[in-house]
């Protein structure tokens, strides 16, 4: 045996020894992993049983949402009925008040005419001048025109104010539609979660953990590749409700908050800040191409004068090149003032 072979053999032996040493160290660790997996499987089974139990409660949650949506819609309908009644009654009273006003104006003209004629008879030396003077005094005391006119005018104005209040309350009831959309979004989420969990539990039992994880991997990939659809998301509560998950943004932007935003924008506008912001945006969009072209084309050509339909942003060349900040910008809620600027 050559000296070289012996050296090589010793080296191999040393490597083998090192491998055994490593094995001795690794085996307990592998045993631990094995034990962990052994323990994990019943735990997963437990979790899946717990999920199954919770799944039984989900239909109840959906039912409760359905009841809430139905109840608020019914209550809103009742309020609207009452408000429409108030508006109608107020308009009738208002019309009557105006009629009374016209009537009292005519009566006043007649009263003045009679007083004038009596005065003429007295002036012409009528033998019943004393009696005529008495009648004239009575007629002069019958001057209620000013008071009646004031009262009817006040009543008409009050009725108009009540009508305006009723309209204001009606407009506030938009919140019912917005909250219904929010509840519909929550219901949709609950139903989707229920569907997914049920499918996971079923596959855990029938296909095993490995296959289940592979399946989930594929599903997540498929979902991320899904193209956005033009169809509205719809869920079934007491009726089919199409919803916008972002509807709450509209709600937050509404009322006082929106008004505040408008005031702030007005202030900025007066200081010249808003116009500067608008011009910066248009410069950015001009350099990005498609979106700006579309915006400019749309604002330059209002709907009334457009003859051809522009392709969707997603189909336009260069539309994918928009920067993340511009994409974020597109996802931002926009104030009514800015919408107005787009259409003006």
């Amino acid at each position: 045996m050559k000296e070289l072979d012996i050296v090589s053999l010793l080296k191999k032996t040393e490597e083998l020894r090192a491998l055994f040493v490593l094995g001795q160290r690794v085996i307990p660790f592998l045993e631990e992993i094995f034990l962990f997996i052994q323990e994990l499987t019943p735990q997963l089974a437990k979790i899946s049983r717990s999920i199954e139990e919770n799944l039984q409660n989900i239909p109840n949650a959906s039912k409760q949402l359905e009841q809430v949506t139905k109840a608020t819609e019914m209550a809103t309908t009742e309020i609207l009925n009452t408000l429409e009644g108030i508006t109608y009654k107020a308009s009738v009273i208002q019309a009557n008040a105006r009629e009374i006003q016209a009537l009292i104006d005519r009566q006043e003209a007649s009263r003045k005419q009679v007083i004038y004629r009596i005065q003429r008879l007295i002036d012409e030396g009528n033998p019943a001048a004393d009696e005529l003077r008495e009648i004239k005094t009575v007629l002069q005391r019958m001057d209620v025109h000013t008071q009646v006119q004031k009262a009817t005018e006040e009543a008409a104005n009050l009725m108009e104010s009540i009508s305006n209040d009723a309209t204001q309350i009606m407009m506030t009831l938009q919140v019912q539609d917005i909250t219904a959309q929010q509840l519909a979004a929550v219901n949709h989420l609950i139903e989707e979660t229920q569907k997914q969990l049920r499918s996971i539990v079923e596959r855990f039992y029938t296909r095993g953990l490995d296959k289940l994880l592979d399946d989930l991997d594929v599903e997540v990939r498929q979902k991320s590749e899904q193209q956005p659809t033009e169809k509205a998301k719809v869920t079934k509560l007491h009726r089919e409700i199409a919803f916008d998950e972002e509807a709450i943004v509209g709600l937050e932007e509404g009322g006082k908050h929106r008004q505040q935003m408008v005031e702030e924008l007005m202030e900025q506008f007066e200081r010249g800040g808003l116009s500067e912001a608008a011009s910066t945006e248009s410069k950015e969009e001009a350099s990005s191409g498609a979106e700006s072209d579309q915006t400019q084309a749309a604002s330059a050509q209002p709907a009334e004068s457009q003859t051809t339909e522009a392709p969707p942003v997603s189909e336009q060349p260069g539309s994918e090149s928009s920067s993340p900040s511009q994409e974020d910008d597109a996802k931002k809620p926009i104030a009514q003032d800015d919408i107005n600027a787009l259409f003006d």
């Binding site: 959309q181 457009q306 522009a310 597109a330």
Partner: peptide, 15 residues
């Protein structure tokens, strides 16, 4: 209720 800029652009495209 849709108040995102991209929504408004879509509406503009649809005329």
């Amino acid at each position: 209720t849709r108040g995102l800029k991209e929504d408004i652009l879509q509406a503009l495209q649809a005329r």
